[in-house]
Write a protein that binds this DNA or RNA. Structure first.
Lengths: 350, 350
DNA sequence: AGTTCATGGTCTTAAAATGTCCCGGGTTAA
DNA sequence: TTAACCCGGGACATTTTAAGACCATGAACT
């Protein structure tokens, strides 16, 4: 109950601060699996000595275990974090931010994790955890899930774990599109297969390059194997996609200079599923490609967007305006920025 | 949510201590109406200086007002205490104690107030407050309530206040028995009238001595006025009774030496409604008297027992074993002791 | 085998908490 | 009216605690 905290704040004015601090420490320890005092102090921007006081306390409460190799969260600590998570949201004021974004863009759910992906790799991991939690929250035993590529999605795949012994052996994971010329780990194909393995589901891969010439597209479309998997992709009930900053994506796709400047000229700020969007969420550029098409996306029941970092706020905002998202998973830095933009819009519309 | 507090106990054990301390201080200030720093420090067993640090904080939070005559609780402070009360129960571990006693003896409700009646007059006042709260919780507009005498009941009568504008003008308060040879303030008659006045209800008095000879009993029973009020008493839906230590009651009743030794020889430890009970809750001695009889008590819908102090634990325990209580209101000292006895019983039954 | 990073111990210093006493003023009871 | 009493608040020495800095030792990894 939110009330109780408000009441206690009167008698314990510094309650929030301490609670936040200890929660953050415990949380960080959990994310790090095992971590030393000095490293942890540096990553939390505390002096070693005060951190030590806190970890001693956490240890005496049985929330962490201290070994010669470092500190590790205990089962009790893990349980505590789980229980505290909703409260922590309100502690950091993230619940309000979530609701603001959710209601403004009519989403069914918004999840904001504390921190900034760009600054801390742990926040990125947390984003992945939150994303997989969100996916598991809507995943049914015989769903088809399409996923895109990207480092955030890769992190999410790593964090995906089924706690319940629910069987997903009739579910399918497929890539939403073909491969980018990027490292193996963050390709949609890899991510689809990782996710599938982690929840005990099946997967199909799409072995075609993402960027296609007209000729190549036509000939591949006739291939029956490819046709089959593309049909599966297009009938997905759930799509999980990263959100990219437009310019960076052109670079990662190694587009030629003229195309890049063309896309930029059209005011593109965001990219997802192979489409480029301007600030207003309008599609300004479409890449010829295999896999999900616009009409498939619009038909998809659950669209989960996942991205974080202040620098991606513009891109995320554009995707929200596009209006096809159902669930957004982002971080505090991006959410704050999006919140500011919402405020500005409201103000200018008065 | 109960959960949150449990979580806090793990993550903020030190803050919970100060929360307890500040709650106790604020609570004591409320009970004292107005009190000076030194007096308060003495009654809470703290040094003046540490108390001062706390009261300064309470003042800065606007929970108390400091005047030249002493400290007084503010409206905000009063509100805070009310809101925090259920949480405080769990903070002090009293909720578990309540539940333990409740379930062991099949009561519908057990209320344990912090402290020890014998040590602190404030705890006695608190016991009275809790008792009147419990009564108001079950009191219906046209109830008949029988009350016994005793200092605890007197305190309860003083603390009885109806917050709601509920009308009890059709309710009746009656004494459960006649007068003891004691001071006016703690006689059942006085208490019944005080309670009735405080909630705007009616009252009838029973003007007969509690201890009667056979002859006197017979002749009084024929009196129509007395017969009428006795009938009202016997049809009560609620009875609120104190619980006395057997030996002390024989003294207060000024019984002759032979009767006293007789009662003692029978192993009596508790007294209530004019009956003496042994440790097992069996009635071992009955006084000839007007008013409530055993069969009336058994028929009564709501029996509220109220008593506190470690020295009364044996007596309270005996009454619980008697098995007619529905609601017990006691203090921490007595409840702890009763809890210990329950543990011993459980252990010996294994 | 050497390096690195971990915990846990210790010493010093700064700061906060505490114990103690006192003062002027208002309240109360005689 | 007066005197005793208790009040809050100021002052200050002292104790306790928190914090910073460093080091010893040991496990793990290269």
């Amino acid at each position: 109950m939110r009330n109780l905290l408000e009441i206690q704040k009167q008698l314990l004015p510094d309650l929030m601060e301490t609670l936040k601090r200890r929660y953050t420490i415990l949380h960080q320890i959990m994310l790090s699996d095992i971590i030393g005092r000095r490293t942890l102090a540096a990553s939390l921007d505390m002096t070693e000595r005060v951190l030590r006081a806190e970890t001693d306390l956490l240890k005496s409460q049985g929330l962490i275990e201290i070994e010669s190799v470092g500190m590790r969260i205990s089962d009790a600590g893990r349980r505590l974090l789980d229980l505290l998570e909703p409260a922590a949201k309100s502690l950091f004021g993230l619940d309000e931010l979530e609701e603001k974004i959710r209601s403004t863009y009519g989403l069914s759910k918004v999840i904001v994790v504390p921190g900034d992906c760009e600054t801390s790799p742990f926040t990125k991991r947390e984003l992945g955890r939150a994303g997989s939690k969100a996916l598991l929250g809507v995943l049914r035993p015989d769903d088809i899930v399409a996923v895109t590529g990207g480092s955030t999605l890769a992190e999410m795949a790593d964090q995906l774990t089924t706690l319940l012994p629910l069987s997903y052996k009739n579910a399918w994971f497929v890539p939403a599109r073909g491969g980018l010329g990027e490292s193996m780990e963050i390709q949609a194909n890899t991510i689809a297969s990782t996710m599938a393995k982690r929840v005990g589901a099946n997967y199909r891969l799409l072995h075609v390059p993402d960027l296609l010439s007209e000729d190549a597209y036509q000939s591949l479309a006739l291939d029956s194997n490819i046709g089959e998997i593309v049909n599966i992709i297009r009938s997905s009930r759930i799509i999980v996609h990263g959100i990219g900053e437009a310019f960076e994506m052109t670079r990662r796709r190694k587009l030629d200079e003229s195309t890049v400047s063309e896309i930029q000229g059209e005011g593109a700020v965001a990219e997802s599923f192979g489409y480029y969007f301007n600030e207003d969420g309008k599609i300004v550029h479409t890449m010829l490609r295999m896999g999900m098409r616009l009409e498939d996306i619009m038909r998809t029941e659950v669209v989960i967007g996942i991205a974080g970092g202040k620098g991606k706020a513009t891109a995320i905002h554009a995707m929200l305006r596009f209006g096809q998202e159902n669930i957004l998973v982002t971080d505090e830095a991006a959410a704050q920025e999006i919140g500011r933009r919402i405020d500005m819009e409201v103000q200018s519309s008065l």
